[in-house]
Design a protein around this nucleic acid. Structure first.
Lengths: 340, 340
DNA sequence: CTGTTAGCGCGTTCAG
DNA sequence: CTGAACGCGCTAACAG
């Protein structure tokens, strides 16, 4: 790799002049400017971003920590995070914390404030807030995105959506269609990351004057297979439910398959609604009715918040809520059978 | 952020000693070692990887360029690439080239040999070989992965699979089931990235003594929607085909939906087979029969090849082929109806 | 066993 | 408009 020195020598100038030409700073005569650019071309010179970062005390990257990119929620999130970063001339470093023994603690401690100027953490319900706070208090901005409760702060700047309202909207959709015996598959523990979505489910039942039968609730983990298994059990034990609320699209797709494997026709025999609107929700058969959450914007705003923090711009508040929630009614929901 | 100097001062030693303690180099007395570690803890000191990279002339990251992480093929690939990188204590920088105006040319030129020591490029059929060669010849290793033809070299080290054989295996599966009128949906141009898969399709027909009817072939792009549209057109114009070979899983999932929307029952009315075995292939209904290609290994080997190149270890050859191809017969394929 | 010296490649003063 | 000098934080080589 050619260095700036070599280019400067070839052009008969000093490194300073080369920098000024390349970065459009200072005033350089057209003649030397041309000579410099020519030398740059000849040598195939590219500035060394590592050296630049060191002297500018500013890293060219931001880091993104997420559970596992294989979960179809994350690619959409990651893409938007990268685009936002690129808009601000930053590169994105990614870490799949599920595959790190320590949940990414080592990653963030190595990267934050050294390779990367800031860290965006996608909330997967298993945040090590201690570690994040430690990093944050050492002076490197850390932002949590996909925070589920706008009313509570994790103690770190966060971008949130109103998960409880999302749960309510989804469930209200089922109720509006006429369903009365509604089950739920919650893809976390009762107090876990989907607790807000679960509370929204209960809110909607309460508002409609419906009782919440605990036997109709299943808790599982946030995977396709876990949703499948939970639904299979639920259908076996509670055959009279006419609809099910699932706290997330990925397990909901598993629920759809479980219904099919039990010979339940969706939506004729069973309606299914969930939350998120990942791409697959529109591609499944039947397509999945779901409440769309602002995934793309939460990613972009997370990056922007990080940059605001870096430049010490005033930040509107510790928790930014993106309010957009839209019920997307597709094929998986319909009115219950007449007998209901 | 604390610097090594501050830590050294606090511990009453020099930066060298701090480095030696932290990296297990040289011999340090237990006493000073303890003092140093204590100072490190007090200050919350973490080595600055940027500074380290500069002096070691070795970047802590590798870069991965891919079309778009939103294509479900890439998350699985990316995860494995990252794991391989982490095994060698490297971080991974990612770039979605589809979203870059210049196809990532600027990205690679900025990053290669500066932020990252090497670049892994996932082949999406739109490689700018010129740019890759330019970077490569400037001394930064570049490796192409998911190269489709083991017998041809792109002029850059590559990790390949035998796409033609994959196409043949998939199609032979249909033929073995008894299908004779077989259509094809190829998710690239005829000479495009899936040309090998297409040739494999023709090979299988030839081997079985079946003619290849051009009217049964559709070319499209590598997306769900494009596969859907191509299949819809194909089914409309060629209603007597009993099976279809699709060159990739993502468009094949679109084909399954198109079949359903035309009232074709899969596999009773129509068999569908494709190539890749992304996660969704097992999750669709009907689940998708497909030829599994060694995605994970191509990612990991790509990273490892990059590292071999970096350390100037001898490389076995310019194109490494991962031979594993397995037909995964699922629900989307069955014998044709008796009339056939 | 520990400290001193030198420099990685670059960008930013501040003189000329 | 250009150049010399300095330093970013760290590590390697060598001296003590």
């Amino acid at each position: 790799m050619a260095t700036i020195k070599e280019v400067a020598a070839l052009a008969g100038v000093t490194p300073t002049t080369v920098t000024n030409v390349l970065r459009g700073r200072g005033r350089v005569s057209e003649a030397t400017r041309a000579r410099v650019l020519d030398a740059v071309r000849q040598k195939g010179y590219r500035p060394n971003l590592t050296a630049r970062a060191l002297v500018e005390r500013k890293a060219p990257t931001l880091a993104l920590m997420l559970g596992c990119i294989t979960n179809p929620f994350y690619p959409e999130f990651t893409l938007q995070a990268q685009l936002a970063a690129r808009r601000h001339e930053r590169f994105l470093l990614i870490c799949n914390t599920d595959e790190e023994r320590d949940g990414g603690k080592q990653f963030i401690e190595q990267v934050a404030g050294s390779l990367s100027d800031g860290v965006l953490v996608a909330n997967n319900g298993e945040l090590d807030l201690q570690a994040l706070l430690a990093v944050s208090s050492r002076g490197t901005p850390v932002v949590i995105s996909v925070w589920e409760d706008p009313a509570t702060s994790p103690g770190i700047p966060a971008v949130a959506f109103d998960s409880r309202r999302a749960g309510r909207l989804a469930t209200a959709h089922l109720i509006a269609l006429g369903h009365r015996r509604i089950g739920a598959v919650i893809a976390s523990s009762r107090q876990g990351i989907h607790s807000g979505r679960y509370l929204g489910f209960r809110d909607a039942l309460n508002e409609a004057g419906l009782a919440c039968d605990e036997r109709h609730i299943r808790f599982c983990t946030d995977t396709f297979d876990s949703g499948y298994a939970a639904a299979l059990a639920l259908f076996g034990e509670q055959p009279d439910i006419s609809a099910v609320f699932v706290s997330n699209d990925l397990p909901a797709l598993g629920v759809l398959n479980a219904a099919a494997d039990r010979g339940l026709s969706v939506p004729a025999d069973l309606s299914v609604v969930s939350i998120t609107d990942i791409h697959q929700a529109a591609q499944s058969r039947p397509s999945l009715s779901t409440v769309r959450i602002p995934t793309a914007e939460m990613a972009a705003r997370g990056i922007e918040l990080l940059l605001d923090l870096l430049e010490k711009r005033v930040v509107s508040g510790p928790v930014i809520c993106i309010p957009d929630l839209t019920l997307i009614a597709r094929q998986s929901t319909a009115a219950p059978r007449a007998r209901d």
